[in-house]
Design a protein around this nucleic acid. Sequence first.
DNA 1: AGATTAGTGACAGCCGCTGACAATTGACAA
DNA 2: TTGTCAATTGTCAGCGGCTGTCACTAATCT
Lengths: 225, 225
Amino acid sequence: MDTAPRPGLRERKKQRTRDALVRSALELFAAQGYERTTVDEIVEAVDVSQRTFFRYFAGKEEAAFAVQEMTESHFLDAVRQRPPHEAPLDALRRAVMASWDTIGEAIEAVVPIELHMRTYQLIESTPALLATHLRRHEGLEEQLARLIAEREGVDVDADPRPRVAVALFGGVMRLAARRWGAGEDFSVAAMRELTASYLDGMGPALTEDWHTRNKRDREDTRDTR
Amino acid sequence: MDTAPRPGLRERKKQRTRDALVRSALELFAAQGYERTTVDEIVEAVDVSQRTFFRYFAGKEEAAFAVQEMTESHFLDAVRQRPPHEAPLDALRRAVMASWDTIGEAIEAVVPIELHMRTYQLIESTPALLATHLRRHEGLEEQLARLIAEREGVDVDADPRPRVAVALFGGVMRLAARRWGAGEDFSVAAMRELTASYLDGMGPALTEDWHTRNKRDREDTRDTR
DNA sequence: AGATTAGTGACAGCCGCTGACAATTGACAA
DNA sequence: TTGTCAATTGTCAGCGGCTGTCACTAATCT
């Protein structure tokens, strides 16, 4: 399973340069904001040319999402490792919880976890980064839908249920993440609590009556003209 | 309620310039793609300076979303007009259906509807535009959540149910929109059908067993360590 | 009509990003 | 070791999005 015997000097050097660029970028972003940080500042701190930066990253944004990328593929792996007898939403929920317990070390190899947390806050509060983050999130949902469809043995393009389930799950996850970022407690434990509580709220939100209102017969809503 | 007696020459001129820029932009985007269209091309077709373009729009993107902006506020109005006795998800569903029946004229006043449709396709297929679209979508969800919370008389920050309900609804709506854009039939009727069918799938997706599997007892999933 | 104010055009300049080409450096064999 | 090849990098030039500044024109106000 270990397919990395000796990366070779060249490869190691590349990895070091890349990590240094990510670290330098995230530090500068956290210190002075994303927009106010120029690529020239980033490369100057690592002492490489601007052209080199753009050989490692397609754009300034990609550097900001380098660590996110790691956590996402880690989560996907966790989903793949769920036993097939678990129901879809159950497997997703357990995979989230499990991946948070083991992602720490991988992150720390590149940047301090605290910096990663601050980067997440920055993404949520910077419109340009938030937009890209949401697009990436949707890409992740697409991959999740295919995984779920495979688990359940259905055709992801013919059967809407995998995508619907993942959309519900993803929507609630984003809600929890947003609230976590807006709160005070940035610990993993807090995130875990929030996520569990929001996931528990999915069912109740679908039952139509919230306070004292009686259950009413749902007439056909297809056409209101 | 009509607070627009005489716009004045100056105001009318501004409106015409703006509409011309939007039309010119969307036509060029549709013809040659978003990225391959420069702001210089857009302003040349309207015969104004590049500086003027950036006085009307914060960026090239904003011109691409000018019509979307109209449809979104139209939908919000439709939600506000739903009678308060309707359950949240029911009101949202009916508001979508209702707003589609009346948005046509407002769009046509600026650009041909067919161009608006093509623009939507373009947004879905252009990564940079898709990202911004998703961020706008989330902004809309936030406004929806506040509306729903007000209708139901709950505190949007203390009670998670409005946001959860809207997240579920919004996620399913995006799914339908995405599929509509990927399909063949770009009529409003097709969109209506798709939306209804996806909304109907929300309930079934939450019930955990999809094929022959028996309902299993949900153990506690809060902690898997 | 004259004063005021809003909208515009022209110009200069920053920043993200890319193509092209030359220079450097690690990988591998002779 | 040394020479060759290929990968990586630096330098330079340039485009497109976007902004600040300032003078100029045209609509509005008195």
